[in-house]
Amino acid sequence: MTRRAIIVVAASMMLASAACAADSQIWGGMIITNIPEYGKDQSRNLGPLFTYLQGNFFRSIFLGILLGIPAVFLCHYLVFGPKVFSHDGERIYVFTLFNRIIHLLAAVSFVILVPTGFMIVFGAYLGGGALVTYARHLHGIATIVFAVSVVPMFVFWFVEMLPAMDDIKWFFMLGGYLSRKKQEVPAGKFNGGQKVWFWLATIGGLVMIVTGGAMYLQDFGLGIAGGLGMSQIDLLRLAAIVHNLLAFAVVAFFFTHVYMSLFAIKGSINSIITGYKEEDEVKHLHSSYYRKLKQVRKA
């Protein structure tokens, strides 16, 4: 009985997909009207643009990021060395348990998303086939984990991540990272660099989910493409271009985030594990926040 039910369900799903194919926006009658959208003068030319970018640049740029950014950080480490702060002072509680759990989810998803993304980009060198196909599936599954974490993360850090005057000063001195000197850096609870990463990871992350989801679903109706005044295939082309361009920035900042937390500031990774930051570290790298904490304590 169960087996029969499964067969019935499977068969009806197959028929449903066949029915979908008949009035599909990609493979239905629009297959003809979509042709002039490719390369004709009045069209958006997204097809030729995607072909040009993916055929000539995307892979090389990803290779540049994959090798270039770690190389830059290696040089930085050798020239300026890590920032070391005293672990003897008081410890300041900065991340709640909820913060840390959500961040852990995001971290796990990124540790899967970024390497599997690179596996798809460099699939040709891995021989394609099952290995890269599973990387693509894993890329999709990890997206669900990221989607769960991104909304609460956006909400609980939103206020502290809003731009402030300190951030401009921070950018002019690049957070003091181009100096061996231990100095007080202007920053609130989060510095200018962290804020850029936050907005990129949350808003940019949502765009990555939406564009990736569009490519995963491919032939969805929903009236989204029509609502935007474009064809479904052009919407997919736009999604592919945006997903790749945004991935450059997300991956570059992800590498930076990892370098900062693991190497550039000794022991700073502990704050997202235990919730506590060393007083010496907060005093120097988040000086405005430290002063505010002191004032609150006095009052």
Binding site: G55, R136, A240
Partner: peptide, 9 residues
């Protein structure tokens, strides 16, 4: 790998 890039192109 069934990524769909060929379809966009």
């Amino acid at each position: 790998i069934g990524c769909g890039y060929c379809l966009y192109a």
